[in-house]
Design a protein around this nucleic acid. Structure first.
Length: 338
DNA sequence: ACAGGCGTCACAACGGTAGT
DNA sequence: ACTACCGTTGTGACGCCTGT
């Protein structure tokens, strides 16, 4: 049962303003609500039991039904099972080549035997990058100054790909060829080389500070060589959503250091949004000639003000995890906000 | 070198069933 | 009747693999 609100007391007469009367009224309303919820609960329980009974009943078919053809005792349980589960196109359907997902998966599994159909890679017809890349927006610079940040580096400027924004990938790929690895200390680079993830505070254009996992991916080749890239992972989906990022938007990732430990922090700057383009070139940069970044977008996104705040729209579980890690790494809102 | 595809794994939700 | 446990399925996340 949730908390009582003023709405729950609408139309109720309280004899006097005596605390005891208020207490009695609260008890009365709470009791009524409790009784109501209890009866609802038992009703839904009844419903559930009825549903269960129906589901447990073996599926029967009229004898003249076309579906009856080929329906035998052996398959009756299978059919009953099918009837129990909603068919949304994803659920498993037993016993047929057409419907059995496992059958299809098993077919697919030998991927070396079954050559994948050749992918049609559509080349993105992207406009050229702004060159030289625009400087960091004043607002971000000031904020970094405000928290005694130092060693500001532009890590990468890239145009977001569709894959970067695919929710099931949940990552921002950072190819080695496009970055300046100088933003990492030797120790950090070593950790990443050893496939150890780094967790870094991530300053978003929407003025939120989230936490991002930086990891190196080594992609080994048959030839023995491997190509590597970094990936910002795990909370990237939330960041993309929160900041309304779209494929072909051009972003920059900046790094800087905070505190005595020289903790690595990253900041995201949106250089250009695809819908701001006139179809031929880049939209105008902001007044300070830096990237347009968040300033122009704040009103649109409803994120006014210039202070970054440690908050996010992730699930409570995610929040819990982030908080745990922030604690572990000594990050907190007071450390991140000036 | 890079982008994108896809296999695998972990986890949550839900249903079934055995035990009390 | 209720509870606890187990199995099944769907979904999301991760990271390897492959085509361009």
């Amino acid at each position: 049962m949730g908390y009582l609100t003023m709405k729950d007391f609408k139309g109720m007469q309280i004899p006097s303003s005596c605390p005891m009367d208020y207490l009695t009224a609260v008890a009365e309303v709470a009791t009524i609500q409790y009784e109501e919820e209890k009866s609802k609960e038992s009703h839904s329980k009844q419903e559930r039991l009825i549903k269960e009974k129906i589901l447990k009943k073996p599926m029967t078919m009229p004898t003249d039904s076309p579906w009856k053809q080929g329906f035998d005792e052996e398959n009756s349980m299978v059919s009953a099972f099918q009837a129990q589960r909603p068919k949304n196109g994803l659920k498993r359907i037993y016993g047929s080549e057409e419907g059995d997902i496992d059958f299809k998966i098993n077919q697919k599994k030998s991927k070396y035997n079954n050559k994948k159909p050749i992918r049609s890679m559509q080349k993105l017809d992207l406009p050229p990058f702004p060159n030289p890349p625009p400087d960091m927006p004043e607002e971000v610079k000031n904020h970094i100054k405000g928290i005694d940040g130092s060693e500001v580096f532009m890590v990468i400027q890239k145009s977001l790909t569709a894959t970067d924004l695919k929710p099931n990938h949940s990552r921002l790929s950072i190819p080695f060829g496009k970055i300046n690895r100088g933003f990492l200390k030797e120790r950090e680079r070593d950790l990443l080389d050893q496939q150890i993830s780094l967790e870094v505070p991530f300053y978003e254009p929407s003025h939120k500070v989230s936490s991002m996992i930086l990891r190196q991916w080594d992609m080994g080749k048959d030839s023995g060589k491997s190509s590597s890239m970094y990936a910002l992972r795990t909370y990237w989906n939330a960041v993309a959503k929160e900041n309304d990022l779209k494929a072909e938007d051009v972003i920059q990732v900046w790094s800087f250091r905070v505190g005595d430990e020289q903790k690595l922090c990253l900041a995201l700057v949106v250089v250009s949004r695809v819908r701001d383009l006139d179809g031929h070139g880049w939209s105008k940069m902001s007044d300070n000639e830096g990237a347009s970044s968040s300033l122009g977008r704040e009103k649109e996104l409803g994120c006014g003000g210039s202070k970054w705040t440690v908050e996010d729209t992730s699930t409570s579980k995610e929040r819990e995890n982030i908080q745990c890690r922030e604690y572990k790494h000594g990050i907190n809102s007071s450390a991140l906000s000036p």
